[in-house]
């Protein structure tokens, strides 16, 4: 049991989280942006589950991560629908083309 402490898991969570943010900020493909969202939420989820094992959070952490997974799915569905709608209107998936509203 000496193996891996909580810090290892937290580091993984942090990496996933930051990769997600970067992914959202760099991808020009709308679907790629959504993948970034999934990574961000997943990073938080790793945290929750890690705390549930190593901290006093207990089962609550796991349940929170369950709800996050469900909410992420819902959000992904809506986001995908919006991206597809954007695609239908602009005939592209490049988010850089979303530049008509500004100022």
């Amino acid at each position: 049991m000496e193996g891996v402490g909580i810090n290892g898991y937290l580091a993984v969570g942090a990496v996933l989280f930051v990769c997600g943010v970067i992914c959202m900020a760099t991808k020009r493909n709308g679907i790629g942006v959504l993948m970034g969202v999934e990574l961000v939420l997943n990073g938080a989820n790793v945290n929750f589950v890690a705390f549930s094992k190593f901290g006093p959070l207990g089962l609550d952490g796991q349940i929170a991560s369950l709800f996050v997974i469900v909410l992420a799915a819902a959000e992904a569905a809506v986001a995908l629908a919006i991206v597809l709608n954007f695609y239908n209107n602009h005939l592209t998936i490049d988010v850089d083309r979303a530049n008509e509203l500004q100022g």
């Binding site: 993948m35 799915a73 992904a76």
Partner: peptide, 14 residues
């Protein structure tokens, strides 16, 4: 689920 959804999205737009 979610990733399959995303891949559908990829297929529809790619």
């Amino acid at each position: 689920g979610t990733v399959v959804l995303l891949i559908f999205g990829v297929m529809l737009t790619a």
